[in-house]
Amino acid sequence: MPDSACVVSDAGPLIHLDELGCLDLLGGLGDVLIPEVVWAEVQKHRPAFALNLIATARIVPSEAVDAQLHAVSKAFDLDAGEIAALAVLRKKRARMLLCDDSAARLAAESLGVEVRGTIGLIVRAIRMKLRTTEEVHHLLHNLTALSTLHVSQALLKQVLAQLPAP
């Protein structure tokens, strides 16, 4: 049974939300666990990353990789951060992985893990009243200009079409 009090983040959403000035969008998810390996990756890309902007963030040590996770990580060719995130998630019984890599998402889902990415977190900001609908439209319109998240313009158009009008 997952522990609804925490989620685990891979580097992608942390980096992308920081680029967008939106780390506060992680609010309300419970403790945000960041494996040490992931934190090192975040710091490499965002040296000035202000961890204190995520009130519930905790950097946690790596956990042992069990046989099932080892096999899945090989099958999906996961990197060290993704493996560490999944290992921590399984150990802490966290309820969700935050990740933007499609292969890592597939791997996590094959292990029965719910995964959400940066765009989901941005859209969620409307429901959680962290941003107005207009602000979310603006963020998504400018997503590829303001962040290193790679998304096609066609897909962004589809996403925007699903949102309430600003």
Partner: peptide, 21 residues
Amino acid sequence: SHEPGLIESQVMSDVEWGLKG
């Protein structure tokens, strides 16, 4: 492992969660 159709389905699932989760 990064086939565009797969990424699209993951992102649209995220949008659904974002709006109604």
